[in-house]
């Protein structure tokens, strides 16, 4: 078991290193100049040169690469002095420092920028995925149990619409009707109090939820239809089990297995930021930050967000594996056998 965990950790570290290295190389291969992006499109060349030197972008690619990884996790003082020139961009965890550098554009430590925004993105991601799963699974089950009936067709039609509508359209429509016309919700923003945060969360979560729930509903419906025709369901019916028990305890349990994988991947992706939705509703999360960073060639922020996204995808995959083991007794017994 320990060996398996160690291997998993090692492979995760290799994935992180590979992703970061690839991002670093792609970012530097782009035919544009981060110093120019900082100085402005009309800045004079001499001024751009000075900015380039100040940001350390005049050093060789290899030097910048080594410096990034050397600084990424290092040891330093557990208490930082104000304006410490060597650790000004560090986030200390005791003597271990995480240093993602300073944002070229915002001139703040990247770790701090991400730490401010990650919880907001996580909140949106969890709210959206919860909505997607609850609404999507319920609609999928209903449609599967009423196969060929009006309700089934209705769910299929609506989910087709939901899946086909891009979030920038559905978001705009929801904003127009729910916030502008009917004044039920704030138009956009983040708010200042918990109640305001909750109210501001509804529209972006709903926008992401419409798309995801439609997708999940179709997914669950198809899986349920397959399961409902299996022998064990026929046996359960023959044994006289109540329909809801067959549906929920037997068929649904098997139908959600593939859904867990999809939800895990979606959660990982959403934790990296929902770019369009965050921009549309001025939700101050990682999505808005990442799109700005890419456009403005803000290398340290891009690297920081890629690191966070990679880690969240790895973590969500791990979570999916654990959930699989919890849901599927066959996996538990297989693991027990292999550990003997």
């Amino acid at each position: 078991m320990i060996r398996r965990a160690a291997l998993r950790l090692l492979s995760s570290l290799v994935v992180v290193w590979l992703v970061l290295t690839t991002t670093f190389l792609i970012h530097h291969a782009l035919p544009s100049d981060p110093a120019r992006a900082v100085a402005g499109p009309q800045a004079r060349p001499a001024d751009v040169d000075r900015i380039r030197q100040r940001l350390g972008l005049d050093r060789s690619l290899a030097t910048q690469y080594v410096a990034f990884f050397r600084r990424l996790v290092h040891f330093g003082p557990s208490q930082l002095a104000p304006k410490d020139p060597d650790h000004g961009s560090c986030s200390p965890l005791g003597r271990v420092h995480l240093d993602l550098g300073m944002s070229f554009q915002k001139r703040k430590p990247v770790a701090k920028l991400i730490a401010e925004r990650l919880p907001r993105t996580a909140l949106l991601a969890v709210a959206a995925v919860s909505l997607q799963v609850l609404v999507g699974a319920a609609a999928g089950i209903l449609a599967a149990t009423r196969r060929g009936k009006l309700l089934d067709h209705g769910v299929i039609g609506l989910t087709l619409l939901g899946v086909s509508t891009p979030t920038f359209i559905s978001g705009l429509l929801l904003q127009y009707w729910l916030a502008y016309r009917w004044k039920l919700l704030p138009l956009d923003g983040w708010g200042r109090t918990t109640a305001e945060h909750a109210a501001c969360l509804v529209l972006p979560a709903l926008t992401l939820g419409v798309f995801g729930a439609s997708y999940y509903a179709r997914f669950v419906r198809d899986e349920m239809l397959v399961q409902l025709q299996q022998d064990y369901v026929r046996t359960a019916r023959a044994k006289g089990l109540q329909p809801w028990r067959i549906l929920v305890l037997h068929a649904l349990r098997n139908a959600v297995m593939p859904l867990v994988t999809v939800v895990g991947m979606d959660l990982g992706a959403l934790l990296g930021g929902a770019i369009v939705t965050e921009k549309l509703f001025r939700w101050p999360g990682l999505g808005a930050l990442s799109v700005d960073a890419v456009i403005e060639r803000d290398g340290p922020v891009v690297m920081g967000i890629v690191l966070v996204t990679t880690l969240t995808v790895i973590a969500s995959n791990l979570l999916v594996d654990l959930l699989y083991a919890a849901i599927d007794p066959r996996l538990r017994s297989r693991q027990a056998l292999s550990s003997r």
């Binding site: 916030a179 009917w182 004044k183 039920l184 919700l185 704030p186 138009l187 923003g189 983040w190 708010g191 200042r192 109090t193 109640a195 305001e196 909750a198 109210a199 501001c200």
Partner: peptide, 16 residues
């Protein structure tokens, strides 16, 4: 206030 825009839900929730 920028976040609140006088929406209905806002009027039901406590304000700082």
């Amino acid at each position: 206030s920028p976040a609140w825009n006088g929406n209905v839900l806002a009027s039901l929730l406590p304000r700082r």
